[in-house]
Design a protein around this nucleic acid. Structure first.
Lengths: 196, 196
DNA sequence: CACTATCGGCACGCACCGTGCCGATGGCAG
DNA sequence: CTGCCATCGGCACGGTGCGTGCCGATAGTG
């Protein structure tokens, strides 16, 4: 993503990796509060200019840092049981969302996005839409295997599932625990499941 | 709320109202970007101290300003048809969330809340929990009239409904249009509706 | 009429953003 | 090996906003 494979590979590339890692470390240590460009620069022993040469804004840096640790939490399992796969995935995503470094960085991106519609669009495209898509893929497979009804509108269902999860994790202050995930998945399965 | 009926009614009370209104006006005019304490003070012709004597932080001011225009959008109708009542209410809430002054102020509160867990709790108690409760009330009535199945877990359902709505309105950049609301309500009714 | 709380105005210290300029450093071409 | 030049870290600047402190002016109260 941030690193073109055939780039001229000057010493800048290594610094880029260090800066992204420093951002994540900082998020893990001091949380959202300390996630400023200056703080990242201080921690990495780097002038601000070195950061601004790579990312046009604080939000861009945070987005890149987020994508560094985010993708690993997106792979749904496929055991043949949708209910269990969704449950397991939601619990895993919920735990990742709640803790460092993903939680603080995600929160920082959301805070930045509130004042910038284009950033909000980018956030949605790069992360939320991806999560929705993976969810849609999984439940579409379930529909094909007969676990879900054929006439279900799964596109909106995927958005509702992810939306409810992120709402609880990032806007509400309640934990994404087993009870919450069960309530969510139960409603989904009650709506579109074939095994009553 | 902010104005006790039997307050000693010094000149301070009138200023409080003016300041809340100035905050809302500012949100409607310049949006999220201009929502700073200093800007509110400038607009109202008021020293910052006059604001800080009333609210301990920027977030507290925004919360009070929000509750000034928020309550009017919470009254569900009860026509005897849950699906239609939910639909109508979600479309109305969605429109309110998208435009000024509620939209910008809400976004500002959310941005502030990302860095302050206690503020996040307050936001949830004062607004999100209220919305969920009203929704729960409405669908509980529907359950009693037989429109919804008796064994449905409506508490989580209410959270899912509101969560999906707020997710779309505040985190995603997609509009809360009829298609989205229909998809949401359809899933809910498919899960717990009795009229198949 | 005097008293006192509140007022608007101004300034401060702090933090951060984003930019400009500097001399130093290190990788690459010749 | 050597010289070149992009990138580097360091520093300073102007701008904005937060939250606080101090000032003299003002307006309600006793």
């Amino acid at each position: 993503m941030t690193e073109p494979p055939t780039a001229p590979r000057r010493r800048g590339t290594a610094r880029t990796e260090e800066l992204l890692q420093a951002t994540l470390d900082l998020a893990a240590e001091v949380g959202y509060a300390g996630l400023s460009i200056e703080a990242v620069g201080r921690r990495a022993g780097v002038g601000k200019h070195t950061i601004y040469r790579r990312w046009p804004s604080k939000a861009a840096l945070l987005l890149d840092a987020l994508s560094r640790v985010w993708t690993s939490d997106l792979d749904y399992r496929d055991t043949g049981n949708v209910r269990e796969d969704l449950r397991e995935q939601f619990l895993r995503s919920g735990a990742a969302l709640s803790g460092p470094p993903i939680g603080p960085v995600y929160r920082a991106v959301i805070a930045e996005a509130q004042g910038d519609p284009s950033l909000r669009a980018t956030l949605h495209e790069r992360f939320l839409a991806t999560v929705e898509q993976r969810t849609l893929d999984r439940i579409t497979r379930a529909q094909r295997t007969g676990e879900l009804t054929a006439d279900a509108n799964l596109e909106f269902a995927a958005e509702v599932l992810c939306g409810a999860l992120y709402y609880r994790g990032l806007m509400s202050n309640r934990p994404i625990d087993a009870a919450a995930v069960d309530g969510l998945v139960d409603m989904f399965m009650a709506a579109y499941g074939t095994t009553r």
